Simulated scan of single mutants.
Amino acid sequence: MGDKLRWTAEVLLFGLAVLDAWLGTEPEWSLSTVAVAVAVLALPLRRRHPYVAFVLTLPMLALSYAVVAVLITLYGVARHTRDRRALAWCSTAVAIGYAVPWPDKVDLISGPSIMVDVIYALMMGAAPAFLGQLVQARRDLSLRLAEINEAREHERELIAQTVLAKERAQLAREMHDVVSHQVSLIAVHAGVLQVSPPDPETKEVAATIRRLSVGTLDELRHMVALLRASGSVATDLAPQPTLTALPTLIANSGIDTTVEGTMPTDADAATQRAIYRTVQEALTNVRKHAPGATAVVRLWHNEDELGVTVTNGPPTRPTLSLPSAQHGLIGLHERAELLNGTLTSGPTPDGGFHVRLRLPTTGSP
């Protein structure tokens, strides 16, 4: 819209200058016609070469009664120049060119009209200059306001980052002092139970608990390090899991799990992470809500879709009440939606549970 208005204004000014030149040119003055034609044709130069356009329009004041073209170029000089002295000289030249009775006009000027001509000449020289400087000041002020708003926005971001850094530091301390301590105690007690178990099954369970506790401690230490880094760009982030880590995840889950099917080797990183996190969350829920149950992880793909289905049977041991924020499946739903996929879950007829992730083969949007 701005370009359209600008071009409309250009056309209107050019038309006004042509009309003024036609009305203010004496046909019998050949030099007048040439000067006016040069002045009108110089108008398009005023944006890139304002001084050149202004000089080319000055002869029009001496050889005709047309003034619009020279006023437009004077406004262009005032709008672009930072040199107040040069602008003053240009305004003075316009005032003199309008006021001084040139030889071809001297017989048209009488004594009483000289004062009026001087007043008009001063107005002709001053008005375009002041208007151009006003537009320039308005533009500079707009740029300055934009810089101030940008600086304020940057300041708000810095304040938000500072608050976030404090919260991360506090969370890191809590994780280090409370969560890590509790997991360490679990690992220690599991190690004691593993050394002197009452039966082989208990020894195997204790070994699984100890292995998971040690892995959890490593992840907690890494998370604490990331939180203490406060989101620094130089933070050394651990690589995100892919399908190559899926066998290790299943082996360390402590659940009798069968893997069926394969995934295409060219699956993108976001798809692989989504499948990995789905299997991880599903097996975690089996441990929490269906102790002793077996699970089946089925990887599948076709021409249009790919995904994973994790199905577990009913629990074979009493279920313990464990704390849960109920955010796991919600996060999986959100991850699937971001990848233009779907996630469904629910109980099975035999008392088990299933989680199914479907993603398009085109990957993330």
Rank of each mutant, 00 (worst) to 15 (best):
M1I: 09
G2S: 10
K4A: 13
R6A: 15
F14L: 15
D20N: 12
D20Y: 02
E28P: 03
V36S: 15
A39P: 07
L43R: 04
L45F: 07
A53Q: 08
L56S: 09
P59C: 12
A66E: 07
I72D: 01
Y75T: 03
Y75A: 13
R84Y: 07
R85S: 05
S91R: 06
V94A: 03
M115E: 11
I119W: 09
Y120F: 10
A127T: 14
Q136F: 06
A137N: 09
A137K: 11
I148G: 08
E157I: 09
V163G: 01
M175R: 11
H176F: 01
A187L: 01
A190S: 09
S196G: 02
A206H: 05
R210W: 03
R211M: 07
G215P: 03
G215K: 09
V224W: 00
V224Q: 13
A229P: 01
S230C: 10
L246T: 03
L246G: 04
P247W: 04
A251H: 07
N252F: 04
E260P: 00
A267L: 14
A269C: 07
A270S: 14
Q272F: 06
R273F: 12
R277D: 13
N285C: 09
V286S: 13
A290F: 13
A290P: 06
R298P: 03
N302Y: 04
E303W: 03
D304N: 14
D304R: 14
T311M: 10
T311N: 10
N312M: 05
S321H: 10
E334S: 11
E337G: 04
S345L: 02
G346L: 05
D350A: 13
F353K: 00
G363P: 00
